[in-house]
């Protein structure tokens, strides 16, 4: 069978064996949120290097194949990126790297991980001056309304 474009093999591979799965002990950015419509949950931890680029990233979550595969691919994608580059990531990038047709409902599943990441990144305040302690920032922004973040979805509930 597999007429189903949405469940191409690499999507199912990422779902069954997600990359960068887990949490970080001392993340600079840590944020989580749920898609209440589906019950999908995603948490993303990011550790930055001295230049403020992504040195390491982990995600943890539960949910449908699309939300989990999307998070897996996203975490691969952002390694080495600066926060400004992450802020530039958009819905179109997610659609492109997933490479599958998605209707409006499943698009929400696909975008959850980027929304969580953006909320964490926008809430992040870099430590002031050299030598300042880098403390984990527990994101508090409402990711459903990320404000200036490029990924915005209208609430449909």
């Amino acid at each position: 069978m597999v007429r189903l474009d949405m469940y191409r093999e690499y999507i199912l591979d990422h779902y069954k064996q997600p990359h960068n799965f887990g949490t970080l002990d001392d993340p600079d950015i840590s944020h989580e949120d749920v898609n209440h419509l589906c019950g999908d949950e995603i948490r993303i931890d990011v550790k930055l290097d001295a230049e403020g680029r992504v040195a390491d990233v982990r995600f943890k979550g539960r949910g449908c194949a699309i939300s989990q595969a999307s998070a897996s691919i996203l975490t691969d994608t952002i390694k080495g990126m600066s926060l400004d580059e992450i802020k530039e990531l958009s819905k179109d990038d997610v659609v492109e790297y997933l490479g599958i047709p998605l209707g409006p409902v499943r698009l929400k599943c696909a975008l959850l991980s980027l929304q969580v990441l953006h909320a964490g990144v926008y809430a992040y305040a870099p430590p002031e001056g050299p030598g300042a302690a880098v403390s984990p920032r527990q994101g508090t922004a409402d990711t459903r309304h990320p404000g200036k973040g490029p990924v915005q979805q209208k609430a449909s509930e």
Binding site: M1, R3, L4, M6, Y7, H36, L37, C38, G39, G63, C64, A65, I66, R106, C109
Partner: peptide, 22 residues
């Protein structure tokens, strides 16, 4: 199998409409 994935397979492969979610 997450219910959303199940609902997608049922819809696209079988024309079966079910509800998935809470």
């Amino acid at each position: 199998i997450h219910p959303h994935d199940l609902a997608t397979v049922l819809d696209q492969e079988f024309g079966v409409a079910i509800r998935a979610g809470h």
